[in-house]
Nucleic acid binder design. Structure first.
Lengths: 134, 134
DNA sequence: CTAGATGCAAAGAGTTTGCACGAAG
DNA sequence: CTTCGTGCAAACTCTTTGCATCTAG
């Protein structure tokens, strides 16, 4: 379904910032930080306030459209939620990011079995050198 | 071997801050943020500057005594490096942290096989509800 | 119109840097 | 003594909040 249409039907306004940010994440399946979002929009001559970007990312996360992830850089990244849960390979050299599907279910099952712990959320990311940079 | 003795033999000074911080991480096998380290020391009447804590954590990391980890909170945590690589179960309710050994080698092998990517570092952490809080 | 969204300024965490002073060896 | 480590102040990044203003519907 169309994300923007759905939001409109729920009574949310389709402002310039909202439309541009949703478009950005839909066209570029890559985890972006708040300030990266702002920079990309600025390059496209869309001038949106820092605060607005943060609020919009929070809004889209609440709506289940974006998810927040972390590469341990001291800042949050966001990406559009896709049907299948995936993780990332981050190249230490060029900064490129590849998606990867990981069989994490068996891993989580094992963790829960060994620990009496109910896992609700997890963080799995890999850092190294990509094929191009080798 | 004794960490402090080793550092001394390498020509590093055994200052109050250094001794207290090494002791703290040796007695408490738990990931701590820089400011948590400072708070604990203050409670013990050891007054160390914020900057000194950051510099000491960086130093101990460079020395291979501590490792930096992230729970995606927007800040770094540090813990003493133990013989076996482990990960954590962080309770969303009580904030408690349990160590867990994960069979990540097979996971990393699979990732590398599927991607032409050489994995150098990874981030694997779990969040949920611990046995006590259930 | 009017609630929802925005911009601006300020503030708050976490972290780093430069520089002069202090203390371990 | 001399070099390594410390404290302090300032600055920097990322993020949040309050409030007045604007605008999509």
């Amino acid at each position: 379904m169309d994300v923007l249409r759905t939001l409109a039907l729920e009574g949310h306004r389709l402002t310039k910032a909202r439309k541009e940010i949703v478009n950005l994440f839909q066209s570029q399946h890559k985890p972006l930080s708040a300030l990266e979002v702002k920079q990309i929009l600025t390059k496209r001559n869309v001038h949106v306030n820092r605060t607005t970007v943060y609020r919009e990312l929070w809004f889209l996360k609440e709506k289940g459209i974006l998810q927040e992830i972390s590469f341990g850089e001291g800042k949050s990244r966001f990406e559009i939620i896709t049907a299948h849960c995936h993780h990332h390979l981050v190249c230490n050299n060029c900064g490129g990011i590849e998606d990867i599907i990981v069989d994490e279910d068996s891993l989580i099952q094992a963790v829960q079995k060994n620990s009496q712990f109910t896992v609700e959320r997890h963080l799995i990311e890999f850092f190294g050198v990509c094929a191009n940079c080798k």
